Simulated scan of single mutants.
Amino acid sequence: MYTNNFEKDFFWDEVKKARRIGISAHVRPDGDAISSCLAMYDYITDNYNKDGAKTVDIFSMDFSEKFLIMKNSDKFITNDDYKEPYDLFIVLDCGSIDRVYADEKIVNGAGEVFLFDHHVSNTGFAKYQVINSESASTTELIFDYFDEDKISKDCAIALYMGIIHDTGVFKHTNTTERTMVVAGKLLSIGKFNQEELIDGTFYAKSYKENQILGRALMESIMLANGKIIVSWLNRKIMDFYGVESKNLEGIIDQLRVTDGVEVAIFIYETADLEYKISMRSNGVVDVAKTAVFFGGGGHVKAAGCTMRGQLHDCINNLTLGICHQLEEHGVKID
């Protein structure tokens, strides 16, 4: 999927003219969401706001402390901090308006709205948008809109961080030759310690995060002749271990690598009878189709949604569509 209805120079002309600029990505932000926001913030403030005359705000809900390693990660504000309309609002790494963290009235209340995204399920909700599902991450996508000689070390780190988190440190099949070229350029520009960034933000886990990972694995069940693995956590268990949604990263990926599994599903309770669903596919199933059906979105191999109802009904409804796809590909399901 590729959509682009504006030129690079036009975008930066709008940035130059804007007095107030807002930036936001999707709710429950992952590495690419946080990193793309910070990269855009860094590039704008470094090159278009040297005198500090502009107001540049980046919106996000709470995120993992591991991303505090990036400069300006303390600059994020919440919807409660909103004061007055923006001349320009930039949405990053988000497939639909209802998934943007910043309130819809804040986004749509801006003079102009630009969208940069790489989700194949994107609904195309902005006036100006570039959507490229071939990009491994949104940070890879926005790299093409930055002049390389104007990218600071901190901006390069943020761009690189988004790539490593959305590619699983270059192991997922969304990693392309272009991805590696961009990553190499960022290493050359920033001259940073990539081992420290990768270990510190991708592999490192706190003790309670390791505990909840173990609990999620213990609670998992196998369905559809071992082709689907499902695990879930309710609020009582999360409160017992003292964890929040930001501490659950990596659980779905560990479920996915279970031998023989085609699809992994991880579910956690966000409110009474409300659940956040994450899905990962090993290739046969397009989990974005299932996510979109239930009002979510994502990529062919990684997608998610929010569901309401009884837990067992949510699991049954999710697996029904997944099993249908498996059977279409010749996988026998009893």
Rank of each mutant, 00 (worst) to 15 (best):
residue 32 D to Y: 15
residue 33 A to G: 14
residue 37 C to Y: 03
residue 39 A to H: 12
residue 40 M to P: 01
residue 41 Y to Q: 00
residue 41 Y to H: 06
residue 42 D to W: 14
residue 43 Y to Q: 00
residue 45 T to K: 04
residue 47 N to M: 12
residue 47 N to I: 07
residue 48 Y to L: 04
residue 49 N to F: 07
residue 50 K to R: 15
residue 50 K to Q: 12
residue 51 D to C: 04
residue 51 D to K: 07
residue 55 T to Y: 10
residue 55 T to I: 15
residue 58 I to K: 02
residue 59 F to S: 00
residue 60 S to Y: 04
residue 60 S to A: 15
residue 61 M to S: 14
residue 61 M to T: 02
residue 61 M to W: 05
residue 62 D to C: 05
residue 62 D to M: 08
residue 63 F to E: 04
residue 64 S to L: 03
residue 65 E to N: 13
residue 65 E to Q: 11
residue 67 F to P: 12
residue 67 F to W: 15
residue 68 L to R: 14
residue 69 I to D: 08
residue 71 K to E: 15
residue 72 N to L: 05
residue 74 D to I: 06
residue 74 D to Y: 10
residue 76 F to V: 12
residue 78 T to D: 09
residue 78 T to G: 06
residue 78 T to Y: 12
residue 79 N to L: 10
residue 81 D to A: 14
residue 83 K to W: 02
residue 83 K to D: 04
residue 83 K to P: 08
residue 91 V to Y: 06
residue 91 V to D: 07
residue 91 V to Q: 08
residue 92 L to P: 06
residue 92 L to V: 00
residue 93 D to L: 08
residue 94 C to M: 06
residue 97 I to A: 13
residue 98 D to Q: 13
residue 98 D to T: 03
residue 101 Y to P: 02
residue 103 D to Q: 12
residue 105 K to Q: 06
residue 106 I to D: 01
residue 108 N to M: 15
residue 109 G to I: 13
